[in-house]
Design a protein around this nucleic acid. Structure first.
Lengths: 148, 148
DNA sequence: AGTTTTTCTACTAAAATAGTAGGATATAAA
DNA sequence: TTTATATCCTACTATTTTAGTAGAAAAACT
């Protein structure tokens, strides 16, 4: 029951993009990778998934880079996780009842459904803007510490 | 973000044990395995974990078998999952903040913490008795269908 | 003594994870 | 028009995790 690096790195990259892309000019993936301490090439694959899903848009060539494809307050965390980790369900039979012939008679499937739905509910209640803002506050607080 | 077969099989085995162990006499693991369609040998490993964690007790030798170590309404699903899947946390840094030097300044970690806590909360709100009862109702309803 | 059960240790095939590597393509600037 | 710099695309690979198998030892009932 773990989130893979794709989900974790992808979310951090999007938070980074949200914070560093407010000017409207595209952000280099290599800069995000450097700031977040993630391999350029690996982040590239993750970014490609986000682009194909329509969460980010890209500008190719020199002076190119990445931009959010819609305002950060319109991007739910559940969307991001679905793109990078697949359907939000703890067992396959929740999303695909036909995966098991006993789905309709299985009480354990019921609890996995309840938990999966709750996870999606929580992730749907936050947007990228929420995390971006929280991150700014945390970073700001961190810097303030050094100025006292 | 999936539950492994250990967690899934283990939960189903415990539901089975709860339903079939009410007489007080031990239940053969081979019978549970047969009813649940799980490999004997693999279920054995799972059962050993449950035994070591104190969720079930065993009687060795002929006429031996498995029994719940406490009433099923005192066994929370969160306990079971922790034994079989490890700590309920979506990323390691939630349970072990030192896993990452930036834990205290990471907004994405905050959301993973919130979701992880919610999963644990939901799983703590149900007991093995709840699932066992639900399973009996489902099975009963299933049989009734054929009698109409 | 013999049968049946749990217990213990080791091994293994397959899949998923977490990357690397290298070139092709597009665009801006010199 | 050349060059530098960015994304795009495909393929490969090492490591770890998952999902089992295999076989013998120990305990307990008959």
């Amino acid at each position: 029951m773990k989130i893979s690096t794709k989900g974790r790195y992808g979310l951090r990259a999007l938070i980074d993009l949200s914070m560093n892309g407010k000017s409207g000019s595209p952000v280099f993936l290599s800069d995000i990778a450097k700031r977040q301490g993630i391999s350029d090439k690996y982040l590239e694959q993750i970014a490609t998934q986000l682009q194909r899903a329509g969460l980010v848009k890209t500008i190719r060539g020199r002076k190119g880079g990445y931009l959010l494809n819609k305002p950060d307050n319109e991007i739910k965390l559940s969307e991001i996780i679905k793109v990078l980790e697949g359907p939000i369900c703890l067992v396959d039979c929740v999303a695909e009842p036909d995966a098991c012939s006993k789905s309709s008679l299985c009480s354990s499937r019921d609890i996995w459904t309840i938990v999966s739905n709750k996870i999606e509910e929580v992730l749907s209640s936050y947007t990228l803007a929420d995390l971006s803002k929280l991150q700014e506050e945390k970073s700001g607080a961190g810097s303030l510490m050094y100025h006292i």
